[in-house]
Structures are given as C-alpha cells and as structure tokens.
Computed example of a mutant assay.
Amino acid sequence: MAPRAGLRDHPEMLIAFNKPFGVLCQFTDRSQPPRPTLAGFGLPPDVYAAGRLDHDSEGLLLLTDDGGLAHRLTDPRHKQPKTYWVQVEGDPGEEALQALRDGIELNDGRTLPARIERLDPPSLWPRDPPVRFRKTVPDAWLAITIHEGRNRQVRRMTAAVGLPTLRLVRVAIGPHRLDALQPGQWRAV
C-alpha cells in the first residue's frame, strides 16, 4: 500500500538555537537596511521558529520542520513553562517579587502566576552592545518561569512592578535547555 500524500517520511526535526541579541526570529527581513535574521546561521533547510524571542532578547529558540510539534511547543493550552534569566534595574523587594509570583495586571489582562527566584549574576557571554552600567543604580538578576507567551510579557511584568528589564535571556522551554550553546550556535534535539 502506498503512503498517503502528506505523511512524513522522516521524523520531525527539532533544533535548539541560541539566538543572539539583535537577531530577528525569521529568515527574511524587508526593512531597509535589513536586520540580521536566522538565515545567517547555517540552520537546516525547511525549519522555522516555534515561538518567538524579540530582537532585543537572547537565548533559547526552538526551530522545527513540523507544524504539529510547533503547535505543541507554543500553544498556551499545552502550558510549556518558559524560563528566563532577567537582569532588572533596581533592587527587587519582597513585595515586588510576590506581585510577580501572584500575577500582574497588564493592559491585555492579568498574567498567570509565575515562579520567581533571585539569582546570583549568571556566567553569560558578553552582550553586544553591552548593557549600560550605571554606578548609582543597582541591578539584580531574577529567574522567571511563565506558562504564557504574550508579546514582551516578561519585560512588561517587571516594568509593572518598577523593575525595568535590562537584559533577558531565555534558558529553557519545557524540558529543552540552552545549556552550553553560545550565541549563534545550534544543535539537533
């Protein structure tokens, strides 16, 4: 019996990619001048991003050639936790941290509860351009795990409690982790 049209003749491909700062989560850009895209990193053909990271965010981006897998990774009904290491401006007090844990009222509704932990400054690659250092303004690092994926959600959450985001690095999506991948590197999962 011949296979039905549309059935895959290979298992789905899943790629973990460390998206550098300033790179768009797409393969083309029509703006002038064009901005850096995923096309410059030697990724396998026919993959596309399962979800997004803003151009000013860094870290784990999953890419696949399978629409069903992309849906399972990104649809909020599947509740894939996403963990970010976030450098914020200011010194987070317990009240701000608890508000983030409980959920924040944003202009598009209340966020789901999040897991929030203080972090020692993580050992990360240097960012280009570097985060502006201000001697008189403290900063802190948080690990934030959310189960949603609204537009610029983590940045809006931290801003809502008076802690603007300086740097945002996604380190995990569900069971998939960034691990030792450096910016621009990728591996098959």
Score class of each variant (00 low, 15 high):
Ala96Cys: 05
Ala96Pro: 03
Asn18Met: 03
Phe27Tyr: 11
Glu58Cys: 08
Pro113Glu: 04
Leu63Ile: 09
Arg127His: 04
Arg77Ser: 13
Cys25Phe: 03
Tyr48Asp: 11
Ser31Thr: 15
Leu106Tyr: 08
Thr83Lys: 02
Leu60Phe: 03
Arg72Ser: 13
Pro33Leu: 10
Glu12Thr: 08
Pro34Ile: 07
Thr64Ala: 11
Leu43Ser: 09
His71Met: 02
Pro33Arg: 10
Tyr48Leu: 08
Ala96Leu: 03
Gly68Gln: 14
Val47Ala: 09
Ser123Met: 11
Glu94Cys: 00
Val86Tyr: 09
Leu53Thr: 08
Gly51Glu: 12
Ser123Val: 14
Ala49Gln: 06
Arg110Pro: 00
Glu58Leu: 06
Val23Glu: 11
Arg35Glu: 12
Trp125Ile: 00
Thr83Asp: 09
Cys25Asp: 09
Gly103Ala: 06
Met13Ala: 14
Gly40Asn: 10
Pro122Met: 02
Leu124Ala: 02
Pro122Gly: 01
Leu63Met: 08
Leu73Glu: 12
Asp91Gln: 15
Leu53His: 09
Arg127Val: 02
Ala50Ile: 04
Asp120Met: 06
Leu38Ser: 06
Ala96Gly: 05
Lys19Thr: 11
Ile15Val: 15
Gln26Thr: 14
Asp108Tyr: 07
Pro44Gln: 05
Arg118Trp: 00
Pro81His: 04
Glu94Ser: 12
Gly59Trp: 00
Ala16Ser: 14
Gln87Pro: 01
Ala49Asp: 12
Thr74Tyr: 01
Phe41Arg: 07
